[in-house]
Design a protein around this nucleic acid. Structure first.
Lengths: 320, 320
DNA sequence: GTTCTTGACGAAATCGATTTCTTGGACTTC
DNA sequence: GAAGTCCAAGAAATCGATTTCGTCAAGAAC
């Protein structure tokens, strides 16, 4: 790998001038040409590490998501990538497994690698943004918010929960249960609150155990659904607060021999690759990719120096 | 962020000694203790960028995959991550979209960011490994091989194709078509060759247009399946050479009003989240995650200095 | 014609670690 | 006790870029 010094020597200028050529500073046309020629001949690529050490920042942003195998987050990742790529930034994807420890470790890496910024789907309410925040690196929370004063992009989760529940109601269901995610995660709590709001407003609130908490994955949804079906008075419909739990619930329904076309299922999110889904299943489509592009846009604005007070952008989910 | 100099000053030693403490060199116990104490008090984290500049290498490996939204590759990514994490390495995920241009750009980034190594699912046969290879950074090809002499981990794709096709045969199908991926991609070609081998051996080769090429995604499989169903003498079964094309094919079958329980479908790979799949669907399970851990293990061995000649490890797929 | 401004550009400092070189003291060895 | 060995630890060089500072010359202003 050729260095700036070799290029300078070949072009007959100082290293400083080479740097200036590549950073758009004032250099006379002849020298500029000489430098470019020398650089081309040596196949010179600036050493990013050296540049980063000097500039104390890089053109890399970190994206921390809880589950790389969840299509919602990969769609989000794609949105982030598209936007970042467009502006010449690279994206580093980190999988936190919803583990605050892993999350913290990745945040520290982001700091010590002097990444330009972080987009974070926080694993918990107490995501410790201290390290990067103190470095003045921008952070954007996505899908979930944090107590820290940072930009955020989220979905109107309560509305999504209301839409899902209302659709089941309109389809004639009354005994509507809810499979919610782990407690303490805002996105899922708001969706479950939407469900409760509808049930209360319509005076249809069922027994307490119509609310089941589960982990965010298919196995959690599956187990929760089995618990619901085993109740003395099982529900005739269910709302799940994310996509994978919906997958699990549907699986449990089918396994139990219940006709999924009759049993009401509403999912906040999309059942991935699931066109075989009985048409009766209600899906509230979340703008995952759009969430990603929006978050990336905000982050890049901040990186560009935008210093307005933190904003929260709320996107609407649409019934599909 | 505290630097090594501040730690040195606080501990009353030289920066060199601080470095030695953190890199396991000979330092007297008292000084070591003093340094650790000072480091703790200042919340010192070594600056990775500076260290990387000096050491000319980092503890980050790049993983280049063609499609982050394909569950096969995310499972693979998880495998890589697990192993890397275990050894204290971070993984940077890059999405090439099967675009040789993007792939090349990421390879250059990997080089100029002095990453320790690269795991690559090559977008094309001509993946240009020149840049990193010349830096002496190890590369492991995964899922697909390359003409370059590097380690590789792959699946016995022909056997997988044979298993898929044979299963359809055993179920009584004779007019078996094949939806293969784009030409020039080894993994998919071997699978299709497995199909052809069985068809020829059993003297059941159908018309030429029973072989359809498609892109690797669901929409490609969908379109190809429609073409097959529109033939004057449509097949009564089909093998798809990857998972997403299988999803698309199944969708087309259902849409066309054909009973998916009667029509034979065999997929090399797993239909993601598809337990609603008619049980008749044959899936040849690919060891995606295992592919990832194996590749990571090999890469880390190389990074550790292992210099034996390039190996290719072939994993078997199992009928499920 | 002298002073001031301006712009190109080289020399050298800088970012923060690692590593080589050196030094000085403790410890062997004969 | 002199010479040789060993080891901890500081000084300084190094990685490869960017950036500050200073110089010098050309052009502007009066």
């Amino acid at each position: 790998m050729a260095t700036i010094y070799e290029v300078a020597a070949l072009a007959g200028v100082s290293p400083a001038t080479v740097s200036r050529v590549f950073n758009g500073n004032t250099v006379s046309p002849e020298k500029a040409r000489a430098v470019r020629e020398a650089a081309a001949r040596l196949a010179f690529t600036p050493n990013k590490t050296a540049r980063r050490l000097r500039k104390q920042s890089s053109e890399v942003v970190a994206l921390l998501i809880p589950d790389i195998e969840n299509p919602f987050f990969t769609a989000l990742a794609r949105g982030v990538e598209d936007k970042a790529q467009e502006k010449g930034f690279s994206v580093v994807l980190c999988n936190t497994d919803d583990d605050p420890g892993k999350e913290l470790r990745y945040l520290e890496i982001a700091a010590s690698e002097q990444m330009a910024g972080v987009i974070l789907a926080p694993a918990s309410d107490e995501a410790d943004l201290g390290a990067i925040a103190s470095l003045g690196r921008p952070v954007v929370a996505v899908d979930r918010t944090t107590p820290y004063p940072v930009d955020a992009v989220k979905v109107d989760n309560r509305a999504a929960g209301i839409a899902a529940t209302t659709a089941l109601f309109d389809a004639g269901h009354r005994k509507i249960a809810c499979i919610a995610g782990p407690v303490g995660i805002e996105a899922t709590e708001d969706r479950f609150l939407g469900w409760r709001q509808v049930m209360t407003a319509r005076r249809a609130a069922g027994p307490e155990n119509y609310l089941q908490h589960a982990n965010f994955r298919a196995d959690g949804g599956h187990a929760a659904m089995r618990r619901l079906l085993a109740l003395p008075e099982p529900p005739d419909a269910v709302v799940t607060t994310n996509n994978l739990m919906g997958v699990g619930a549907l699986q449990a329904i089918v396994e139990a021999g219940v006709d999924p076309a009759k049993f009401g299922l509403a999912v906040v999110g999309e059942l991935p690759f699931m066109f075989l889904t009985p048409p009766a299943v209600v899906q509230v489509r979340l703008p995952a990719r759009h969430l990603g592009t929006t978050a990336a846009t905000m982050l890049l604005e901040r990186i560009g120096g935008d210093a307005q007070p933190p904003r929260t952008i709320v996107l609407r989910a649409e019934l599909a």
